[in-house]
């Protein structure tokens, strides 16, 4: 397991490097923005009061040379200080921490659903290649690929909530119902259904297409010929030999697309009024609350890095070679 630990350590170092790069990028974004950086930090120009802007200038040493400012900025972030939202009169980190769990629940559930359902559908399409089931899966995947996720969200809520009244159209829980314990969990779960499906649909389509293509490719490889020559049954060949090898590129792509999935939560949370970071981003855009927006940028990047580590571990579990070759 030494190889695995090494791999993990090098991944962590890489993650740290990426984080630092993102922090630096944040810093330059504030400075590259048109107008006075203090004003940009405070929010919409002119809206902030003079005292606060002066305080910001002092705090970040905005009259000092750029590299010194960068140092101060990085130092603050390292200490967990993501700045102060003038709009909400609260530290940015407090606002984010409050919203984080809702987003984690949404994105993680969607990620797992997309991966599981995508691989299952792709496998089904590959083993029934050329039949109606394959065509149906291919067409649905193509459509899901071409549809903006926020519009899918709107259409689903138009149909299932407004027309049929089956599922709640928005929110995290039934307001004022005061559920506790399991009833609360069930209530949240019901609210979760539409947002999760909406967010997962695109990625499910993507993984299904990829799994199908990958299975068809692996199916023609030599070791599958060996398995056939052993007289194994079709189902054993598919599960033991083809699928396991075919899944590797799917995991790689899932890791790469994790960033898009996390970004997509902005749209989903906006459509379904899900009280997470994405919804917060929408509000911050409306209010020109750049401090919060940049905080979100940082936090979502960390989430992506975590998703990437997750997929790396998954890959390492499936592929024994990774522990030595990396």
């Amino acid at each position: 397991m030494l190889g695995f630990a090494q791999l993990f350590a090098s991944r962590l170092v890489k993650a740290a490097a990426i984080l630092i790069a993102i922090v630096v990028m944040n810093f330059f974004l504030v400075h590259a923005a048109p107008g006075d950086p203090a004003m940009v930090m405070a929010g919409e120009a002119g809206a902030a009061d003079e005292k606060f802007v002066t305080q910001l200038r002092e705090q970040f040493g905005l009259d000092r040379p750029l590299y010194e400012q960068l140092g101060t900025y990085v130092g603050k972030i390292v200490q967990g200080d993501l700045g102060f939202s003038y709009r909400q009169q609260r530290p940015v980190w407090d606002i984010l921490a409050e919203r984080l769990p809702a987003t984690l629940v949404l994105t993680l559930t969607a990620f797992i659903l997309a991966l599981a359902a995508g691989v299952a559908l792709g496998t089904l399409a590959a083993v029934t290649v050329g039949t109606w089931a394959d065509s149906a899966i291919t067409v649905v995947a193509l459509l899901a690929y071409a549809t903006p996720i926020y519009w899918i969200g709107l259409m689903l809520s138009l149909f299932f909530s407004i027309q049929l009244g089956w599922l709640p159209a928005f929110g995290y829980e039934t307001i004022g119902a005061g559920y506790t314990g399991l009833a609360h969990v069930a209530d949240v779960a019901v609210h979760l259904i539409l947002p999760v499906i909406t967010l997962a649909l695109f990625y499910m389509a993507s993984y299904a297409r990829l799994t199908r293509a990958s299975m068809l490719e692996v199916r023609s490889l030599d070791f599958v010929k060996t398995a056939k020559a052993k007289g194994l049954s079709q189902s054993r060949i598919v599960t033991r030999h083809v699928l396991r090898n075919a899944i590797l590129p799917v995991i790689t792509v899932a890791g790469i697309q994790a960033g898009q999935l996390v970004g997509g939560s902005i749209l989903i949370e906006t459509v379904f009024a899900w009280p997470g970071i994405g919804r917060l981003a929408f509000e911050a855009v409306l209010q020109r609350d750049y401090q919060v927006l940049l905080g979100i940028f940082l936090v979502t990047s960390i989430m992506v890095i975590l998703f990437n580590i997750l997929t790396d571990i998954l890959y390492g579990l499936v592929d024994p070679r990774i522990q030595v070759s990396q």
Partner: peptide, 22 residues
């Protein structure tokens, strides 16, 4: 390395931040 950095950043969030700030 540079490409990897941009691939890790949630691209839609970056697009939102860029357009909002500029």
């Amino acid at each position: 390395r540079f490409t990897e950095l941009f691939q890790t950043i949630p691209n839609f969030v970056l697009a939102v931040v860029l357009v909002a700030i500029f």
